[in-house]
């Protein structure tokens, strides 16, 4: 069945609403308007204003409300329009959702799912285009998911709702229109393991979320040059699947980390560090990184493209790692 990432996500939310009456969706414009990115289109009409709730423009208030509902037995899905706006709810996410289980001595789980859009590439300017999932992946107590395929868009939500602790799902804005083949019986998927999206023996391209498509494109181009790249989709940024990262590096001896976040203090830095910690003696080249330029993401089309990781840059980094780039 041909579907899009957006439709797969909507199917997942709809299924959750149908299967468990403790589940409800809330966020800015998720109801009558159908969601800023049209993910929840039609759900308000189907499930009514009690279960698909429009909220005031106060991330702190509605994320806090979500935490309260979760503490009281509900299974809320909170949508934050973009990751930039999630910063207004940082206190609720980091100081409350992530810590309550720990601070209550294990008495209170917070079974909350927060979905938000992340990433650039659509000329939405620096207010809406940043990739801050790496920040959240810093925080113990949170699980961070980055679905990058229609299967994961379809399947990660239900598994996240089953998790007794807070789970954040980052949906890259450029993926919503991604179409792909989805099995008729597609359902929940695991949310702990990374996935090899392409096998290869010469260099590992490690990525997640919005940069998976360009990384796969880079792998195609490299194959045309005789370089077989393995593409690892991390899927879950916290906790990281160390075994999968190690396995691919042990196989290829070279790694390029592709991350739309900024390079300094980033998730790519973390992955690079883990590779050198656990696989240093397997490396044949320095771990390379392809990240966004360290500027607020520009609005102008050409500048925005210049700031973001591209297949060309991944190809160049991979060539360099295998020794073909001079």
């Amino acid at each position: 069945m041909e579907t899009t990432y957006r439709e797969a996500m909507r199917t997942a939310i709809r299924e959750a609403l149908l299967q468990d009456d403790r589940v409800f969706l809330m966020g800015e414009d998720v109801g009558a308007y159908g969601g800023c990115f049209a993910v929840s289109l039609g759900l308000f009409e189907e499930f009514g204003p009690e279960r698909v709730r429009d909220t005031p423009l106060s991330e702190s208030a509605f994320v806090g409300a979500g935490i309260g509902a979760a503490l009281n037995g509900m299974r809320p899905i909170v949508e934050i329009m973009t990751v930039n706006f999630s910063l207004l709810a940082l206190d609720q996410i980091v100081n409350n959702a992530a810590t309550l289980l720990h601070m209550s001595g294990g008495q209170f789980n917070v079974p909350l799912v927060i979905r938000m859009t992340t990433g650039a590439g659509r000329q939405l300017g620096a207010q809406h285009s940043h990739s801050l999932e790496g920040w959240f992946a810093h925080v113990p107590g949170l699980r961070i998911l980055t679905p990058a395929t229609v299967e994961d868009a379809r399947g990660m939500l239900w598994t996240a709702l089953e998790d007794p602790d807070p789970v954040l799902i980052f949906e890259h804005g450029s993926l919503y229109n991604l179409s792909g083949e989805l099995a008729e019986d597609a359902g929940p998927v695991d949310i702990h393991a990374a996935a090899v999206r392409r096998e290869g023996g010469d260099v590992s391209l490690i990525t997640y979320g919005g940069t998976l498509p360009l990384t796969l494109e880079a792998a195609d181009r490299l194959a045309a040059e005789g370089i077989e790249a393995e593409v690892l989709d991390l899927r879950t940024l916290r906790p990281l699947d160390d075994a999968a990262i190690l396995a691919t590096v042990v196989k290829t001896h070279r790694a390029v980390v592709v991350d739309e976040g900024w390079r300094s203090g980033s998730l790519s830095a973390e992955i690079s560090a883990r590779i050198t910690e656990s696989a240093f003696y397997e490396l044949d080249a320095p771990v390379a990184r392809v990240c966004s330029a360290e500027v607020p993401i520009p609005y102008a089309r050409d500048l925005e493209l210049a700031a973001l990781p591209s297949a060309e840059r991944v190809v160049a980094a991979a060539r360099e790692a295998v020794g073909g780039g001079g």
């Binding site: 044949d284 080249a285 320095p286 360099e320 790692a321 020794g323 780039g325 001079g326």
Partner: peptide, 10 residues
């Protein structure tokens, strides 16, 4: 070496 910048690889 045949690796990056002439580095000796495995």
């Amino acid at each position: 070496g045949t690796g990056p910048r002439g580095a000796v690889t495995g």
